[in-house]
Design a protein around this nucleic acid. Structure first.
Length: 819
DNA sequence: GCCCTAGCGCTTTTT
DNA sequence: GCGCTAGGGC
């Protein structure tokens, strides 16, 4: 490992924006700029370098700034060299951002921070260095969830377990959970191991781990768990890393799971003596401990916010942060409570809401900003009206000069997005969905990667199986089964078995020829790999295998996007030196690409909004059952409710200037319409900071149930007077019959509610007319989202189109092209 | 080997 | 009410 030492002593150019010449200034008596820019608490968090430190950083209090400044401080004080600082984050995005900001502070020091990365990438890196000690080779494959499931399915089949009753997915979930808790197969409590398939769960976990070793593969959980095992079984290796890392920094500590906690704890012990940290009962029950002793723990600094812990369901232990002082005796706890993001009303609303949680360390966010606009709560008749109202407000904001990039809609569950998408398409409002399937999880990307994996390692059975019949080449289940039998009998990889089988007459001539052609291709590609740049190779493989052609021939609406993704994949390979290097990193660091930065409203789940901020935030769907989600309540009880409340807190604190909450009285749940009750979280907001705005629903809601009366049962009692223009329009419209002029219901054309929509359609259409469309009735058109269709009505630039798949929709003409 | 249909389940998601 | 999956029929 190279550890460029020069960073600290190098003369930095004067034009460096933030910290031109940190080192020089630090040596001088003057306070360096990166410190003087901090408030007292932040500064304390940066300057407290010795011993364990917990920084409780509320939303918008400058968490990342503290982390990066702290690194800068350690370096400029000469306390450690860049290679001696371990700095872990959860996501690649967070790691990238830290690198970027450090780069701004320190010049080109980023390359000098070799141990700044995600838990998994750092764990994976350590594991590759010592792979042989955990029965792997250094070029081991990191399996994604898909591979994992496929492997488990094979194991279930081998054990003759009915995978209807005991789905592989469920087992994958269990194993994942065990790994999150740092449990190897032998450490799983027998009671838990027995819950799957009449007691075989533990055994399956063990044989899964064995199979992984045979395949020279690790799953995500292993990157940490095998690391822990490595450290436990080889104290000399552990000591090496303990010695190396003089400082440890952890981002988003509230999201760490038990495995990550154990990993950190092992690394944070002083190299000279064993554990200095108090034992942890919960963990101790299952995990053999290194005995505690009395020497001081290392300089570990964890930054997090217990009020933003929203990943309990995937193994995060809020307890880790709640018990920090207990786990790391002598820890200094520093609270950052000055919020630099939101206005007074927003902050007050969020603080008051989160104060209803019991299991928290307690912080009070404050701001010096003005009160600003009150948080608004709006009731709508149903989800469609909710989308319509939000669409209208967004258009108003847009007219008032707000940038669409500063507007976000945050939903609890992704099914809520659809209604907004439909609405925005109708309005011709550009939007982008954040989150969703990640780039490398897309089928086409994984297929392409599978080809490359087989070229890289002929023993990669999972990859081989994935693409053996993609595109279709007549090698179906029967053929694959035959290959499996061969491979198992002779204990060889599938591709090798295939090579043997094509020399026999066990396969029908057609399949045999097809398989031979594939194998010949792979043989040729492997040879060409030596002489050809890897990007070119990849392109060629996709062409010659017929994979590209498969999508070119595909007529479905997203085929073009898939081809685009494949191009993007090849582009992204350029950053790596060779195929091996690319594949090693792909599963860990590949992120979805930013894409073009057109101005657009952001649409995402509350979970994916963590860490982001917007001037205007819309929060629809605040209803019992949806938010808080019924399942969270059913499965986790009070803990579930508190996590939901933290989610609500995260949602509100994303807003800088406007937070707008909505609830609908009627919502479609699992297909059928039900009446819903406003969320209890609305009742928990401080009346003083909240304003009930226009409510178009008027009738039909009410009905308390579940948790007692809500002041939203009767909006008038809360100050709403139904005098807003929208309300009056809706009233007027309703007496006229309420249907839009086309007579068709919105959002589908086919069956829809018995109830007439309340909004005035005329206004909408008037807005978008002005230009006349050059489309006419019966034109055949294509739409990115809805596919092919036929125009049935033209109204200015607004078209009514009956789509082959999506039914009738109204669309602005610029969104379609003639075919 | 491929295509059609019945049946199920349906919160959040990173690595 | 919709979309995915598995299994059966051709």
């Amino acid at each position: 490992m190279t550890e460029p030492h020069k960073l600290i002593h190098r003369d930095l150019p004067d034009h460096q924006p933030v910290a031109g010449g940190i080192a020089a200034r630090a040596r001088a008596t003057a306070v360096p700029q990166y410190l003087s820019a901090l408030n007292p608490e932040q500064r304390e968090a940066v300057e407290t370098l010795d011993g364990p430190v917990l920084v409780l950083a509320g939303a918008g209090t400058g968490k990342t700034r503290v982390l990066t400044s702290r690194i800068a401080h350690i370096l400029s004080q000469g306390r450690a060299r860049p290679g001696e600082i371990l700095s872990v984050t959860f996501t690649n995005k967070a790691a990238r951002e830290m690198k970027m900001r450090l780069g701004q502070m320190l010049g080109q020091a980023v390359e000098g921070m070799p141990w700044l990365g995600t838990f998994h990438s750092i764990g994976g890196r350590i594991l590759r260095t010592h792979a042989e000690l955990v029965q792997l080779k250094s070029n081991f494959t990191v399996l994604d969830v898909d591979d994992q499931i496929r492997l488990l399915k094979q194991l279930l089949q081998a054990e003759n377990i009915d995978d209807k009753r005991w789905p592989a997915r469920m087992l994958a979930g269990l194993i994942d959970g065990w790994k999150n808790r740092g449990l190897t197969p032998s450490q799983v409590p027998s009671g838990e191991a027995a819950v799957f398939a009449n007691g075989t769960g533990g055994k399956l976990y063990a044989s899964y781990q064995e199979r992984l070793k045979v395949l020279n593969a690790a799953d995500f959980g292993d990157l940490l768990l095998e690391n822990i095992r490595l450290f436990r079984e080889h104290p000399d290796v552990l000591r090496q890393y303990q010695h190396r890392f003089k400082y440890i920094l952890v981002d988003e500590y509230q999201d760490t799971n038990v495995a990550q906690y154990l990993w950190l704890r092992l690394l944070s012990q002083t190299a000279s003596s064993p554990a200095a940290i108090a034992p942890r009962d919960a963990v101790q029950d299952h995990v053999p401990q290194t005995q505690p002793s009395a020497s001081p723990p290392k300089n570990i600094c964890c930054v997090g916010d217990d009020d933003q812990s929203i990943y309990g369901w995937r193994g995060a232990e809020v307890d880790n942060i709640l018990r920090f002082e207990h786990d790391f005796p002598g820890a200094k706890v520093i609270r950052l409570e000055r919020n630099y993001r939101s206005t007074g009303h927003i902050l007050a609303a969020a603080s008051h809401l989160i104060a209803h949680n019991e299991g928290r360390l307690g912080k009070t966010l404050r701001t010096e900003d003005e009160d600003g606009e009150k948080v608004t709560v709006t009731g709508a008749w149903d989800s469609e009206e909710e989308a319509r109202a939000i669409g209208e407000e967004i258009e108003q904001l847009q007219r008032a000069g707000n940038n669409l990039n500063e507007i976000a809609i945050l939903v609890r569950a992704s099914f809520q997005m659809r209604e907004f998408e439909d609405r925005f398409v109708t309005l011709g409002l550009s939007y982008r969905v954040i989150g969703g399937p990640r780039f490398y999880e897309r089928a086409e990307i994984r297929d392409a990667l599978a080809y490359l994996r087989v070229i890289n390692s002929a023993a990669d059975d999972l990859a081989f199986e994935r693409i053996v019949n993609v595109p279709k080449r007549g090698l179906g289940d029967a053929t694959v089964q035959l290959l499996h039998d061969h491979a198992r009998k002779r204990r060889i990889p599938l591709s090798e078995a295939a090579r043997a089988v094509v020399e026999t007459d066990e396969l029908k001539p057609k399949a045999r020829g097809s398989l031979r052609a594939l194998l010949d291709n792979f043989a040729r590609w492997s040879t060409q790999r030596e002489t050809m740049p890897h990007t070119e190779l990849a392109e060629m493989v996709l062409d010659e295998s017929g994979y590209t052609e498969m999508w070119q021939k595909d007529r479905s609406a997203d085929a073009a996007g898939r081809l685009e993704n494949l191009k993007e994949l090849i582009r992204s390979m350029e950053e790596f030196e060779n195929l091996q290097g690319f594949l090693e990193h792909i599963s860990l660091v590949m992120d979805r690409d930013g894409g073009p930065d057109e101005e657009a409203v952001s649409l995402m789940t509350l979970h994916s909004a963590k860490g982001l901020e917007f001037d205007n935030v819309f929060l629809p769907g605040w209803e019992e059952g949806l938010f808080p989600h019924q399942r969270a309540l059913d499965e986790q009880g009070r803990a579930g409710l508190e996590e939901e409340r933290r989610l609500a807190h995260v949602g509100i604190t994303r807003a800088r200037r406007r937070a707008k909450l909505y609830f609908a009285t009627n919502r479609r749940i699992h297909g059928s319409w039900s009446t819903t009750v406003p969320s209890r979280f609305l009742d928990e907001l401080p009346a003083h900071n909240v304003e009930i705005t226009e409510s178009k629903g008027g009738s039909g809601w009410g009905g308390t149930s579940g948790y007692g009366p809500s002041r939203f049962d009767n909006l008038e009692s809360f100050g709403s007077r139904y005098t807003t223009p929208g309300w009056q329009r809706a009233q007027a419209n309703r007496t006229r019959g309420g249907f839009n002029e086309a007579g068709t219901a919105y959002g589908g054309g086919t069956s829809r509610s018995k109830r007439a929509p309340l909004t005035i359609e005329g206004e909408l259409i008037a807005k978008s007319t002005g230009t006349t469309s050059d489309f006419s009735i019966d034109d055949r058109v294509f739409h990115q989202k809805f596919g092919y269709g036929r125009i049935v009505k033209v109204d200015g630039n607004k078209l009514s189109i009956v789509f082959d798949k999506a039914g009738e929709k109204k669309v602005v003409d610029s969104f379609v092209e003639r075919v």
